[in-house]
Design a protein around this nucleic acid. Sequence first.
DNA 1: ACTATGAATTCTGAATACAAAATAGTACAT
DNA 2: ATGTACTATTTTGTATTCAGAATTCATAGT
Lengths: 213, 213
Amino acid sequence: MPIERRPLREQIRDELLRRLDRGDFSAGTDINEAALAAELGVSRTPLREALITLAGEGVLESNQGRGFRFAPVSRKEFRELCEIVAALESLALELSDPEHLRKIGPELLRLAREFPDSVAAQQDIERHDDEWHDLLLSGCPNERLLDLVTSVKAGMRRYAHLRAGDDAPLEREADEHCRVAESLIAGDLPAATRALRDNWVNGMERMMARIPE
Amino acid sequence: MPIERRPLREQIRDELLRRLDRGDFSAGTDINEAALAAELGVSRTPLREALITLAGEGVLESNQGRGFRFAPVSRKEFRELCEIVAALESLALELSDPEHLRKIGPELLRLAREFPDSVAAQQDIERHDDEWHDLLLSGCPNERLLDLVTSVKAGMRRYAHLRAGDDAPLEREADEHCRVAESLIAGDLPAATRALRDNWVNGMERMMARIPE
DNA sequence: ACTATGAATTCTGAATACAAAATAGTACAT
DNA sequence: ATGTACTATTTTGTATTCAGAATTCATAGT
């Protein structure tokens, strides 16, 4: 069995994102490096490396002499992120092998239909949603693009926990995913791309009201 | 006068990108942190922070225990980067205020026409090209998108110096820029977007042959 | 001659130490 | 009471040190 040997900075980054998903950090608050490092049981060095990475992804922002803090959320930024991811995922779809897309269509449909039945924990929903999108893009040969999508989505994690307790949109989300899957099965790529864009636009609208300004 | 007070890591990052433009580093070679830090007159800490940032942007890659190295160039990756930037710039254009686009149209046209007369140094050409694209996107309200474009373009800098000494394509590049500007002046956004995409696709084709495999 | 083994060296990854900037707090003057 | 100057404390930014992994090199064995 291959024992995991990854740099601490990556493990720390993952842990911070996990905590972000759980809503542990409130956006806009400063990070105390020494305290956080102690809490994680590491030194400040790899922690800072992780923070710098996250700042590059837009999860954090840094000010000279003032350290890092979780970038405050805003409707404007969330809209911006959605616009970007929608465009990137559309591109990924267009670059994918149509044959492969048709092949994963049924699986995408199945996943969309068994979308957690609203009772599931928020984290499960997120994970399920991510899984669906990952599968959707699995045929894209542009590796840089996939990395980029992952990176931009990291920036959206600050918003994920705001969705908690909002059950109604879940069905619509599942519905829209079905629509995408069906278009892919039918081999209609443009329709699938449009449906995907709609999904992002609608998802954005649904979220907007829940973002405090 | 406001004296510059930026973190060392940012200054180092800029300096490394400058050197990359000059072709100082040959892609694929490892970086010796201690040597480079000494050469720059800084300690390894802020240097490593800059390296990590650049790795996040795809300029460098890191392997556990083996440090950083300039990611080797490849036709595949260059194609991928072009696809991404083309999509992002197109999106930026679509999000821009049409009125503003029409207003900067003439300036874009002027800049395109006075494209350095092939005698200029390679670096001047790059700078001029960047300036043109920056102006093109200047009306985009999506700040995250602009940051992202900058970041992805950083990854393309590894390819910039490969273009050196290739004069012929310059006129075509200028030509294509004119085409975009004219479409904008005419208020035909879809045409401008198409022309811009063409520009990226053609620019990619032109470069392909010069990338060693 | 070639491979394998192991010591020596070099380099990275991480922790610690130090310096400088920012923040908080206090005394003092108005 | 309010504002200002000054000190103390905290926190970041950078440098240095330490530990361990990777590489190199030499040597022994086949």
